[in-house]
């Protein structure tokens, strides 16, 4: 059997297991609805305008946050990467700030912005910024010194060197950073909605759970998973298209 057919079979088995397990009492039926009920609820949700508003709100927070993080991460990464002193001087600070879990910012986000979009953006930007910055820094360090010297010998100015030497080398890393950042940004967008109560899928989920709508809770979780899969697929496709010239795309590399 080809791989895609096996994969499809795997999904079918999963759906079947979720259908059967609660029916034969393997898991409590009351808290774990069979997949047919979750599916019916999904269809019902898809018919409601509030659901689509929530999806759009989640995507809005995700996209704005990711755009801010990407701009800041790329600019700062190029700047720090180009000047050796700046890179060495900031290394320890970056190493300290990066592992700080972004959820640590939840209290201050709530205090400052309540449950407005800014709260969500603060978490999304903080979490995805580091992913992108670190990749850009790796990328800039990967620049071939011979190419750099050649460009200098041909009289290219600093701006032209960044444009024609540094940027093309760093681009694959930027793309990897964007893909990682996009996934993290989605996680934090939904988390902020769930915990802080900014408008979106996470808030819808919280409402469903606290009002005892069990099937709806599961349905929304499935939707967030589907969104996550779509984000991954889109960014992988963009990565492949924009880098079709790059050697890393010819052989599959392990991330």
């Amino acid at each position: 059997m080809p791989a895609w057919a096996l994969g499809l079979l795997g999904l079918v088995v999963l759906v079947a297991l979720v259908e059967i397990a609660p029916r034969i009492g393997l898991v409590p039926r009351r808290w774990f609805p069979p997949s047919s009920e979750i599916g019916a609820e999904l269809v019902a949700q898809a018919g409601r305008p509030e659901f689509w508003t929530a999806v759009l709100q989640t995507l809005e927070g995700w996209a704005i946050g990711l755009a801010i993080a990407a701009t800041a991460g790329v600019l700062l990464g190029l700047l720090l990467g180009t000047f050796r002193f700046a890179r060495e001087f900031s290394a320890s600070t970056i190493e300290f700030l990066r592992p700080i879990p972004s959820v640590a910012l939840i209290p201050i986000a709530v205090l400052l912005y309540g449950n407005d979009l800014e709260s969500e953006l603060l978490l999304v930007v903080y979490a995805s910024f580091w992913q992108i910055l670190i990749q850009v820094l790796y990328g800039v360090q990967d620049v071939d010194p011979v190419a750099q010297d050649t460009a200098r010998a041909y009289g290219l100015g600093p701006w032209a060197r960044v444009r024609h030497v540094t940027w093309p080398t760093a681009l694959p890393y930027v793309m990897t950073g964007l893909r990682l950042g996009a996934a993290v940004a989605l996680i934090l967008a939904v988390t902020a909605e769930l915990v802080i109560g900014t408008a979106g899928l996470g808030q819808l989920l919280n409402n469903a759970q606290s009002s005892g709508a069990v099937a709806a809770t599961y349905a929304i979780v499935v939707v967030t998973g589907i969104l996550g899969v779509i984000v991954n697929l889109v960014f992988r496709a963009v990565e492949r298209r924009s880098l079709s010239w790059h050697p890393s795309q010819r052989a599959e590399v392990a991330a």
Partner: peptide, 8 residues
């Protein structure tokens, strides 16, 4: 499963 944001 990996794509589901874990906090949900």
């Amino acid at each position: 499963f990996r794509a589901i944001p874990p906090p949900v």
